[in-house]
């Protein structure tokens, strides 16, 4: 007997934060027999954002998934997005390059995210995690951006720091790069 095919979907749910969102969504998924594989959920401002990779055995369809989750989301005022993942997306390769944390902070101004990430993209540096936060006071707003990136072969943290040195001067922000590649004990 062949194994039943496993289907994967990327589900995003966003809306005003309140207690019970995760419980409501995961209840809907549980009732459908879905597995939550990788997921990341976080509060941003007053919003709560969930991104989940879910899996389930065939036969199943995206419309069935939406049909079940949409009323749940409507009830608690959340928006819903569902994308079907193709098998080649599911079997993606792991990250083997050096992992770096890049911290960027300074006086808030337009273009910090764009200017930094444009430099990274040009060098094929993949962002694996990114978060930004506006801190400071109204008179002196400060922008903080933290990025986790995977460096392609042949690129070192020093090279990345050097790459961003001009930008650091131009935008007058602090930019630090440090290696955080995990050590497996």
């Amino acid at each position: 007997m062949t194994q039943p095919e496993i289907l994967h979907y990327a589900v995003s749910v966003v809306g005003k934060d309140r207690p019970g969102i995760v419980a409501a969504i995961s209840e809907g998924l549980f009732n459908l027999g879905c597995n939550i594989a990788d997921s990341s959920c976080t509060m941003l401002g007053g919003e709560f954002a969930m991104i989940l990779i879910i899996s389930l055995k065939k036969p199943f369809s995206k419309s069935r998934l939406v049909e079940e989750l949409k009323p749940v989301c409507d009830k608690i005022g959340m928006s819903l997005g569902v994308r079907t993942l193709h098998s080649d997306e599911v079997d993606r390769q792991g990250i083997d390059g050096e992992i770096c944390m890049i911290s960027v902070y300074g006086a808030d101004q337009p273009g910090i995210v764009y200017r930094v990430t444009r430099e990274l993209a040009a060098r094929n540096i993949n962002i694996t995690d990114l978060n930004t936060k506006l801190i400071g006071t109204e008179e002196e707003p400060v922008y903080v951006m933290m990025l986790e990136v995977a460096l392609p072969d042949g690129v070192t943290a020093e090279m990345v720091e050097h790459t961003l040195a001009d930008l650091k001067k131009e935008l007058n922000v602090e930019i630090g790069v440090r290696v955080i590649t995990p050590v497996a004990f």
Partner: peptide, 11 residues
């Protein structure tokens, strides 16, 4: 909690 996204070969 910002963790675990690396070196995962597949789902």
């Amino acid at each position: 909690i910002k963790t675990g996204l690396f070196r995962r070969k597949n789902y």
